[in-house]
């Protein structure tokens, strides 16, 4: 039996803040509140990656939230869609090029819907979620991987090394230099 048409009727969302200013996060709450009432589309804010279909990410991905982002993404069972909520989640926005951010989540996980806006208004969020539902319906149950894998941090001489924790996999990834886009050398080159 084909159940895929029921996917769009029961999207449960998982929200993760990867370093946003929490303007968008508040707007998500507002979208759940009586005026906008996301629940009328069957949306449930489940908060549990294993029971979610839509991954709603805000924020430009700070260094410390990288692994968490990838881990949450990997824990979600397919089919799943990812929504990048807010300008800084899409491209880095105002934080682009700051030393501790990764300029948008699509360096780490594949994104299906980009919602711009600083901050994205509840109307935009609803629009984006509805758009994501159409994509969700078409998805297969094939395994979707993050662009870079998460591995355990290694501990040597009491120092924890987390630099390998978000490694690139396969081809089409980034070169090691590009993996640290905000390294001081590179920024100096840009400024010259």
């Amino acid at each position: 039996m084909d159940f895929s048409r029921y996917r769009k009727r029961s999207p449960w969302i998982l929200h993760y803040n990867a370093g946003s200013c929490n303007g968008c996060d508040i707007e998500i709450l507002a979208a759940l509140s009586p005026r906008y009432d996301l629940e009328r589309f069957g949306v449930l804010n489940s908060g549990n990656p294993k029971q979610s279909d839509i991954f709603l990410v805000t924020g430009p991905v700070t260094y410390r939230s990288r692994e968490r982002l990838v881990e949450l993404y990997n824990q979600m069972p397919e089919p799943k869609v990812v929504i990048a909520l807010g300008s800084c989640t899409c491209t880095g926005g105002v934080f682009r090029g700051m030393y501790n951010v990764e300029d948008g989540i699509d360096r780490y996980i594949p994104v299906d819907v980009y919602i711009p806006g600083c901050a994205a208004s509840p109307e935009l969020i609803i629009d984006g979620v509805v758009q994501a539902l159409d994509i969700l319906e078409k998805k297969t149950k094939e395994r979707e991987n993050a662009k870079r894998l998460y591995s355990e941090p290694t501990t040597e001489n009491g120092i924890t090394d987390r630099s390998n924790s978000a490694q690139k996999i396969g081809t089409g990834g980034f070169s090691p230099e590009e993996m640290k886009p905000n390294s001081p050398e590179r920024r100096e080159n840009e400024e010259d």
């Binding site: 260094y63 410390r64 501790n100 924890t160 090394d161 987390r162 630099s163 640290k180 001081p184």
Partner: peptide, 8 residues
């Protein structure tokens, strides 16, 4: 507190 090993 804020910085990771590979941060600036």
């Amino acid at each position: 507190l804020y910085l990771d090993e590979d941060s600036l």
